[in-house]
Design a binder for these strands. Structure first.
Lengths: 109, 109
DNA sequence: ATTAACTATCGTATTATTACGATAGGTATT
DNA sequence: AATACCTATCGTAATAATACGATAGTTAAT
């Protein structure tokens, strides 16, 4: 995304932006929905479910892992992915409180 | 962000991704925080608050307007921006139900 | 040992994003 | 009318993101 001067923003703002990136692509939304719905971890089944190349899915999984919202356990030759509950709750709270800062009082425009 | 095959995903998935983009950059998080906190609309004060060029702030505002989460009322020579309550609530519900689809039961990996 | 199956990574083409200076266009003030 | 002020847009450079084929590396099965 171009340059993004992260140093001029607070850690909280940068973290929220990063957590939002987890949901900022429909493929990642789909992956997170699949992982959230199935109690059992889906592994490479994700590739079958999504009309994307294996390399592309793997790339999205890598991004989600970087953010921390999912985790993978290597179980060769497969890898088992699942939601990282801690980060999931962190994201829930972060967005929750972000939305709560707006109290709909009087309109202005 | 490259190509993004939106046509292979559901409308809901694409909408969530779009709403997430509103928060997927720290500058936009900062803008939304300012607009949410102040009951009165901040206008070009945003440019003073953020250490970014006026053109850059305007570009972020345009993106937030495209998503619909903010709205601007032209009041020349100023423009008054504020949260669009409808879309704000839409986003709250969308993320809320997204997070609720995950019920922490048994771990798998 | 070969083969098959599953993933991650590399390389690369294409497109999107970010940032900013410069400019244009609007209104209010002088 | 000229000026000052505010904001949007244009043009552009730099960088990030998306997607995929090809390849490499792993383990299980033959």
């Amino acid at each position: 995304m171009g340059v993004t001067k992260t140093e001029i923003f607070t850690d909280e703002q940068n973290r929220i932006a990063d957590l939002a990136k987890a949901f900022a692509h429909p493929a990642r939304v789909a992956i997170l929905q699949l992982l959230a719905q199935r109690k059992a971890c889906v592994c490479g089944d994700l590739v079958d479910e999504l009309p994307l190349a294996q390399a592309t899915v793997s790339q999205h999984l890598k991004e989600l892992k970087r953010i921390g919202i999912i985790q993978g356990e290597i179980n060769p030759p497969r890898v088992c992915y699942c939601i990282n509950e801690t980060v999931w709750e962190e994201a829930r709270r972060a967005f929750g409180s972000a939305f709560d800062t707006y109290v709909a009082t009087t309109r202005c425009c």
